[in-house]
Write a protein that binds this DNA or RNA. Structure first.
Lengths: 187, 187
DNA sequence: ATAACTCCATACCTTAGGGTATGGTGACGG
DNA sequence: CCGTCACCATACCCTAAGGTATGGAGTTAT
């Protein structure tokens, strides 16, 4: 459906569908037969494109890593914004509800795929350093900025993994949070 | 080995071993044959004690919930400590490395077991309210305390799920963190 | 002592899912 | 027009794992 209109499938058709599956049902949901059914083919097709399941997993890991890397690159555009805006943008990104299941799926995946794990580390690092730099721009010491940025990033990760245990923060709450983290700058 | 010396097994022997398995390998690692081998029996024994796998899962969920509830009860002893000590205790608890895999296993488990999920929510809530109360005792407004406590608890959850993406905080870092969260009390 | 009950072993069934072998069909170059 | 190759269908095998049926051995009560 989302794939190309051609009756023949390409590698990209497979990785695209498989990636979508990983995102909203986890890597454990990838079954060859199921994928085939969703793509309207049978296993004969799959094993022509890929040697085995691991080959498919590796392919979609590669693809996801590439996509994520370009996404991080595009995020560098935030550098032009004022520091507080940068922090706010990251905080809002961390609170984005629909992406929670994706976040969980990715970290679960990372536990069985080194490439994915490395990419996630890189991604976390990226956000962390972005926030830290913004805090330094606001006049914080590197150490103070480090602690605050770490707190925000880890809270973001935790937010995706907590099962709505605590009341969900509103937009106003985020404002308070950003103000708190950015506060008492020149101490 | 850890079970009773008797040659016959009890329900507790099964739930104990299974719970240990869940903790350090996740709920997905529970296989009937494997459990039997570890306990030195065969499936005939398992299916005498339990109707099926779900019955076993339910039993260990029940057991874990009970154990966790008493653990939370014992944690109420912290109420006598000064507020800052209470927060510090919770912060250190959240950073406890060896329990990370347990934390992950539990939340994964919670996604397929409502009882476990509810217990985790209760547990998170407990820690959250404890920290929040301590912050209020320090002179914070309920709203300020709420935000700070939420930040700490979520960061703790995230810390267990991040794959060492960011540099691990030292004991000194925790001190700074607690001081930061508790800081600027009477504003 | 023996009947009854508890706990467990053995053998077997069934399903899901990864993987393989082989043949067929459409498109395209020669 | 025909062969070749890319792509796929069909049929099959193998293993892991949950589940069942049945019988046997140890224990306990009467």
């Amino acid at each position: 459906m989302t794939a190309s209109a051609s009756s023949r499938l390409s590698i990209e058709d497979w990785t695209e569908r498989a990636l979508a599956l990983v995102m909203d049902e986890g890597v454990g949901a990838i079954k060859i037969n199921r994928l085939c059914k969703e793509l309207g083919v049978t296993k004969g097709s799959f094993y022509w494109h890929f040697a085995d399941l691991d080959a498919l997993l590796e392919a979609i890991a590669e693809r996801w890593c590439a996509e994520t890397r370009t996404l991080l690159g595009s995020l560098s555009a935030l550098d032009d914004l004022p520091p507080l805006e940068r922090i706010r943008a990251m905080a809002l990104r961390l609170i984005d509800g629909p992406s929670f299941s994706v976040e969980r799926a990715l970290r679960e995946w990372a536990r069985s795929d080194a490439k994915v794990a490395a990419m996630i580390v890189e991604s976390d690092q990226f956000v962390f350093e972005l926030v830290q730099a913004a805090l330094v721009d606001l006049g914080h010491t590197p150490e103070g900025a480090r602690m605050r940025a770490g707190l925000l990033v880890y809270a973001g990760i935790g937010f995706a993994h907590g099962q709505n245990s605590l009341p969900q923060p509103t937009a106003d709450d985020i404002e308070d949070l950003v103000a708190f983290l950015a506060g008492e700058a020149a101490r």
